[in-house]
């Protein structure tokens, strides 16, 4: 069974963001980078499937600068067999249509039976790329899964809907699923596996070889939202803060009465 998992490297969302000089994206300097959280679940599920189906081969793909290889190595240490780095200095400027086109172009002649992606990225959050890849490849896709099972070529999954309700759906491989948070419990790479991962194949492909379309949209301007409401911000020593808060709750709410 041939499996592909697509991951993205994103900044830690707790970072202090700055706007780049052009005002069109966040500045990539001085940020801590990590694997997109949704993709951690995608990698884990792909590795579990590989372990379930004997003789499987699992490729991890990531688009971006040289630095994304650090994140790819984590996926390799968790259990992916090989990595394909699509080298692109400007991946942050590409829209979901372009990103999906690049991945679909790569995947088109590889015969993947299952493709895993995160349901969205933490930075752009457009929730388009996975579904677009499947549409481009002409395979069924199930988005936002929180449960996954595979048997005899059949995929059974649960989609997460609003309000804690789930939809039970089935489809047949080849197919693509997009993974929601909580799908599984992502494992940590062990030290021996981190060492082994260094020897795994990590191919680099130029994005220009795979990109054959033009963007459908662009970011005209990025900015910090205006602070609304103007809530009170309190800083200081904890005992003082506690006293201040209790006084505020006495004044503004009835809960301490």
């Amino acid at each position: 069974m041939k499996i592909l998992v697509c991951i993205k490297q994103v900044p830690d969302m707790e970072s202090k963001f700055k706007i780049n000089a052009e005002g069109t994206w966040y500045d990539g300097i001085d940020l801590a980078w990590r694997m997109n959280e949704y993709d951690e679940y995608a990698v884990e599920q792909a590795v579990q499937l590989k372990e379930q189906v004997a003789g499987s081969d699992l490729t991890v793909l990531c688009i971006g600068r040289q630095q994304v290889q650090e994140t790819m190595k984590k996926a390799l240490a968790i259990g992916c067999d090989r990595g394909v780095h699509v080298a692109d200095e400007n991946s942050h400027q590409k829209d979901p249509f372009e990103i999906a086109s690049v991945i679909a172009e790569f995947a088109s002649d590889k015969g993947f039976d299952l493709i895993f992606t995160g349901m969205q990225s933490q930075d752009r959050g457009s929730a388009q790329v996975g579904v677009l890849i499947a549409e481009m490849l002409g395979m069924p896709s199930i988005s936002t899964i929180v449960d996954f099972a595979f048997a005899d070529g059949q995929i059974s999954a649960k989609r997460e809907l609003e309000g804690g309700i789930k939809a039970l759906v089935k489809t047949t491989a080849p197919a693509l699923v997009t993974c929601q948070l909580g799908l599984n419990t992502p494992r940590y790479p062990t030290l021996p596996n981190i060492m082994k991962a260094k020897k795994k194949e990590l191919l680099s492909v130029e994005v220009a070889d795979l990109l054959k379309v033009e963007a459908k949209q662009e970011t005209a301007k990025i900015y910090f939202p205006e602070k609304k409401g103007g809530g009170l911000v309190l800083e200081g020593e904890v005992a003082d803060l506690a006293d201040q808060l209790i006084q505020i709750l006495k004044d503004k709410t009835a809960v301490l009465a």
Binding site: G125, Q217, P225
Partner: peptide, 19 residues
């Protein structure tokens, strides 16, 4: 122009469609 959140709503962006 539509505006969408970025990075867990820490940032916002104006999106220009080319279609």
């Amino acid at each position: 122009v539509p505006v969408a959140p970025v990075c867990n709503s820490k940032l916002r962006r104006q999106v220009k469609a080319n279609t």
